[in-house]
């Protein structure tokens, strides 16, 4: 399994343009951002003043970086990266050299594992570099960068960081699942990106969509479907972990009102079903697929 992972890692990492633009851009972007800001702060007193008035904590900076996975640009880059990983083999016509060398299921699951490792490495680096960079910027601006290091701060930060990283990773895995599935179906990098981004976009608008469908068909019960969407359940899980209570959502139109307030267990099961379902579907599709190029 380690050999298979290294084969995939070496292959993708060897595509320097791809990895530079779509995955290493996150930590490299963090360094670039720090350098540009450092230059501006060094040259501009007003910038330093503005920076001082901002109350940034290094703990928030460290944890908050993982939120970039849900940012539309961050999501687009990761969908592109996933599409290349999965559809690239069709475009490069290399499946015919790879498939006879190993079973199809490990080959495709290995792509998900490698993708996950790339994302974790890139974002862990980005969060550390941004946090250190912000420290440098705060020092240049002569601004405080709390809190002081203590055992309880470290405990809380590790817990928050883990939660943020896990939820961000799961959210990425679902988007990657869309991208992988779309890439497999279209056998095209561009097709994979477009379809996956459209699905992600549609998922974000699913609440509005369900309200419109319920309104026009006069079927308020259809709003209950929203409780099975990844977005709602990820927010619900996040709220349960952070506050010990869920994140109730109210969907309404006219006199109809549906309140969704699900347990931690329910959301965990729904999210697991999405992740396993998307990966399983991609794997099942690939197992039966004819490789004609």
């Amino acid at each position: 399994m380690l050999n298979l992972f290294r084969a995939e890692w070496n292959k993708i990492a060897g595509h320097r343009w791809l990895t530079s633009c779509l995955i290493w851009i996150f930590p490299v972007g963090a360094v670039a951002f720090t350098l540009v800001m450092a230059l501006i702060l060094s040259l501009s007193e007003s910038a330093r003043l503005a920076f001082r008035s901002d109350t940034v904590q290094w703990t928030e900076q460290l944890v908050g970086t993982w939120g970039f996975l849900n940012n539309p640009l961050g999501r687009l880059l990761l969908i592109g990266f996933t599409a290349v990983m999965f559809a690239g083999e069709y475009q490069w016509q290399t499946w015919k050299s790879i498939i006879p060398r190993n079973r199809r299921v490990p080959l495709i699951l290995n792509k998900f594992v490698t993708l996950g490792v790339f994302v974790v490495v890139a974002f862990a680096l980005m969060s550390v570099l941004l946090t250190l960079g912000m420290g440098l910027l705060r020092a240049i601006a002569d601004a405080p960068y709390p809190p002081e290091l203590s055992a309880s701060v470290i405990r809380t930060t590790v817990s928050d960081y883990t939660r943020s990283a896990v939820l961000g990773f799961i959210s990425t895995l679902i988007a990657a699942g869309y991208a992988a599935l779309a890439a497999m179906l279209t056998r095209s990098i561009l097709g994979g990106v477009l379809v996956a981004y459209a699905v992600t976009f549609a998922e974000n608008l699913s609440a509005v969509g369900l309200i419109l469908i319920a309104y026009f068909l006069d079927l308020p019960g259809i709003l209950q479907l929203y409780r099975f969407t990844p977005g709602y359940n990820l927010l619900n899980l996040d709220a349960w972990i952070r506050t010990g209570a869920g994140n109730p959502i109210v969907l309404d139109y006219g006199a109809n009102r549906v309140e969704l307030a699900d347990s931690f267990g329910f959301s965990a099961v729904v999210i697991a079903a999405w992740v396993i379902g998307l990966i399983g579907l991609t794997t099942a599709l690939f197992r039966r697929q004819d490789i004609t190029s």
Binding site: A7, G14, K96, S97, R101
Partner: peptide, 24 residues
């Protein structure tokens, strides 16, 4: 099959390494 296909962005040695590792 129908002419050899490779990862053109990798070196010859790295291509063979990828294939060999894939086959464990």
């Amino acid at each position: 099959v129908e002419g050899a296909s490779f990862y053109n962005f990798l070196t010859a040695r790295r291509n063979l390494e990828v294939f060999a590792r894939t086959a464990n």
